[in-house]
Amino acid sequence: MRDTAGLAARTLTPSRPADAPPVLLVHGFGSDGAADWIDTGIAGALTDAGRTVIVPDLRGHGDSPVPSTSAEVTAPALAADLVAVMDEAGAATFDVAGYSLGARIAWELPSAAPGRVERAVLGGLSPAEPFTAVDIEALHRAVQDGTECDDPFTGAIAGMVKAHGDRAAGLALCVEGLRATPFAGGPWNAKVLPVLVVGENDELTQGIDGLAESVGGARLVTVPGAHHEVLAGARFRDTVLDVLAR
């Protein structure tokens, strides 16, 4: 683990490098790079295939700095952090795989780093921004002093955030920043369309077929599992390896 471009990041290097760009792996909300990509075996499978893998922790997550304002953790700001990581790694181009929030931030990367994103696998991507339904003031109160949330969804998010202890306030700011910059699809500004991967029992990805069509017919792959199960599944890992193979 090292600090790179302001974020904590791991760089995994293969023993027999392939002639291919590095792979950026972007984790989900409330998780970190190790839990989503290293513990699931995906990062190791990519290095076994000869790929250099870069696994950062998003701002407010894992070992990365806690934000002081929500402006630091809007979707564009999080994407800019990732571009800075790849700049520091010397990556002229790169592939990317993201899951859930990681997929949502990865969607920003072709615009944030024009001409540099080659192939992309976006798993567990919600075509609508779930955080727009959060009562952000109630969320901050719940984190600060334990005030109960009247709205069940906000209460569920508060419970998830508070489970992270002293990092809860930073995660609440992440929710605020993402809520202020909701995902709305839009063009995919890279030459190769992303591959979208969804769990067959993942309610968060309902409507993803419309998003796939909106960018010109992105390939949609369905794998077993609910939202929290997909990452650990062999089908998801194999899809990442297949799509990013050179």
Rank of each mutant, 00 (worst) to 15 (best):
G6R: 08
A5C: 07
P110K: 06
S64C: 06
P56W: 03
V161G: 11
S126M: 00
D48G: 06
L231D: 15
A49K: 05
A226S: 15
F94K: 08
V96C: 02
R16S: 14
S111F: 11
A34G: 00
G210I: 02
A133Y: 03
P22K: 01
E148D: 12
V73I: 07
S15W: 02
A234S: 15
R119N: 06
A158C: 11
L171E: 05
M1A: 08
R51V: 02
V96I: 05
D81C: 02
G124D: 02
A89F: 06
V161Q: 10
A234H: 14
D145G: 15
V215S: 07
A9L: 06
P110Q: 03
W37G: 01
L139T: 05
H164L: 12
D39P: 01
K191Q: 13
F236H: 06
I105H: 11
R116Q: 09
L204R: 13
S15M: 14
H61F: 10
V192D: 10
E88C: 07
V192E: 08
D135R: 04
G98T: 05
Y99L: 04
L122I: 06
E108S: 09
I54D: 00
P182M: 04
D48K: 10
G177V: 09
T13P: 07
I157A: 03
T147G: 12
C149L: 08
A128L: 14
M160W: 10
G33Q: 00
V73Q: 04
E137C: 11
L58N: 11
D32I: 00
I38N: 00
A106T: 08
G185C: 14
S214N: 01
A156N: 15
D166C: 10
R141Y: 05
Q206M: 10
L220T: 14
R16P: 05
L58V: 09
T47C: 05
P224V: 13
C149V: 11
V243A: 12
P187Y: 10
A218E: 08
A112D: 07
